[in-house]
Amino acid sequence: MVEKHTSDIGFSEAPVRVSEWRRFRRVFFERKLVTFGLGVLVLLVIAAFFAPLLAPYDPYELGDAGESLLQPSGEHLMGTDILGRDTLSRLIYGARTALMVGFISVTVAGIIGIPLGIIAGYFGGVLNMVIMRAMDALMCFPMLLLALFLAAVLKEYFSGIWVVIIALSVAIIPGYARVTHGLTLSIKENDYIMAQRAMGSSNSRVMFRHILPNAFPPLIVLVTMQLGALILAEAGLSFLGIGIDPPGAAWGAMVWDGYRYLANNPVLWLAPGIAIALVVFAFNIVGDGLRDALDPRLRGLL
């Protein structure tokens, strides 16, 4: 609605310098929830990076005889697990696993999926058909099922966490290809792409210098949302016993461990559970905020 009126009255005709960054900040921080989400993510990153400094105990160190399944206390803020390991420390190290799995999978999938989508969309025809049908086929499998299958196959060749990363990457490639494909199709219709061809640009220049940067804002939103989904999936997988090898700390595995002491030691599964929920929620909220802030329809307006 806003857009319609501004084009009606056409005050965009006179050039006003509007700082893109300022506009981005204003829209992005307009909603309190987004700021909160961003705060959660900053905490997550800090926890992951400075885990050795922040964790009060070694997360792998087994406790002495009497130290298993301790209730929260001054000494162990969130108590200990069955092996006597400090829950808080494991939670902090778990952030590392979660972020690592998330970021690496997203990057790997992006590196493969985005070019596939651009190539399919740009060239069209047979190439488009082959790539997109392959992606459709991959998409037919539910993400978790695909990951389970890959994990079973790959288990012999890779260590736990890499199995998860590979499995999740493969699972989300079609998502990237699909979105990029759609974006490419719409960006391709712009005259500036025709202009590139008229100037004699090579295809790769058109695809990666002109289409890709213009597809970037929506892709960043996708990446952010995907990170949340991946962390959830990683938790799901490690809950099912696939993933980081013991004694490594992963939130999903911690939930599974704590699940057995549901009644007496609720903190044991509540803490990682809440961590997962909070982080996934934060990624989604921030993704939402990014989408609004990067909306090209708002560009050039104050």
Binding site: V2, H5, T6, I9, V16, L301, L302
Partner: peptide, 11 residues
């Protein structure tokens, strides 16, 4: 007029 965030536009 249109009350936009950039100011009042006297259309």
């Amino acid at each position: 007029q249109f009350n936009t965030e950039g100011g009042v536009v006297k259309a």
